[in-house]
Design a protein around this nucleic acid. Sequence first.
DNA 1: TGCGATTTAATCGCATGCGATTAAATTCTC
DNA 2: GAGAATTTAATCGCATGCGATTAAATCGCA
Lengths: 148, 148
Amino acid sequence: MSDAPADQLHLDEFLCFALYKAHHAMNRFYKPLLGALGLTYPQYLVLMALWEQDNQNVGQLGELLHLESNTLTPLLKRLEQAGLVQRRRAANDERQVQVTLTEQGRALRQKSRDVSACLFDTIGMTRDELGALVADVNGVTGAVVAGR
Amino acid sequence: MSDAPADQLHLDEFLCFALYKAHHAMNRFYKPLLGALGLTYPQYLVLMALWEQDNQNVGQLGELLHLESNTLTPLLKRLEQAGLVQRRRAANDERQVQVTLTEQGRALRQKSRDVSACLFDTIGMTRDELGALVADVNGVTGAVVAGR
DNA sequence: TGCGATTTAATCGCATGCGATTAAATTCTC
DNA sequence: GAGAATTTAATCGCATGCGATTAAATCGCA
């Protein structure tokens, strides 16, 4: 099946484990910064998606963030509860729910500026190094998603 | 604070987002494979840690996997319920809980052999490329953990 | 020795993720 | 045009993660 000597692999050498730890490290890094804005990391991702392109429906957000409605619906309800987005059934297709930023949601973009900048300072990589790593990681993601 | 032009950054360019997606892609990839063994991914990580070094206490496992007792305790109880590990208070220090593999837990190692090999085949990278990527990702994790 | 500080797991509450199912709206097909 | 198939969110149940707190055991120091 594979020529990889799985017998000799140690936990530390696994890519999946490295990604697992990196993901959680990112989460912990962002938590206090985003907590000051009253956001969780997935909520921040949704807002980033809407800052780039407002008025998306649940399916579009799910495609972008690789999430299903079972995760997004309660999350979006919490964002709505916090007054950051509005949820409305689309007029032309009542199955879809349009998610739109409120004025307050748009305003939060300014406050979140240095949240993202903070990570750059911390990891201390050049834009090029960062871009290469992002490309590599995304490449793995693509291969894994395709290979299922 | 940073010379990174955060204003112009798109969601796709964020390393944290790349790691977020990669982590979830791994999870989804492993889920059916591990589900056949009755395991979740974090449970698999715990077993891998014990396969390398049996009889660790909760704190040691937490250090290795970057998890706290609030996550590990219920997880370990489920593994115990499944008959894969045993939990015992340490004789010399009753505060600590020693986690040991059962015969069934050791046996599962054989069945999980091709789970890890399967990922190698799917992502199609050489050992060297993989090692370099793991090192890069771990480097970011280290910087982020240190920079908190 | 004795008592406060520290260490170690456990517990609680809340927010994801996700498999499975459901409900409602729309589209397709005859 | 009616009914089946499909699409789209929502709902439910369960397993993480984690901040905050608690409880028990051990350590340290006067």
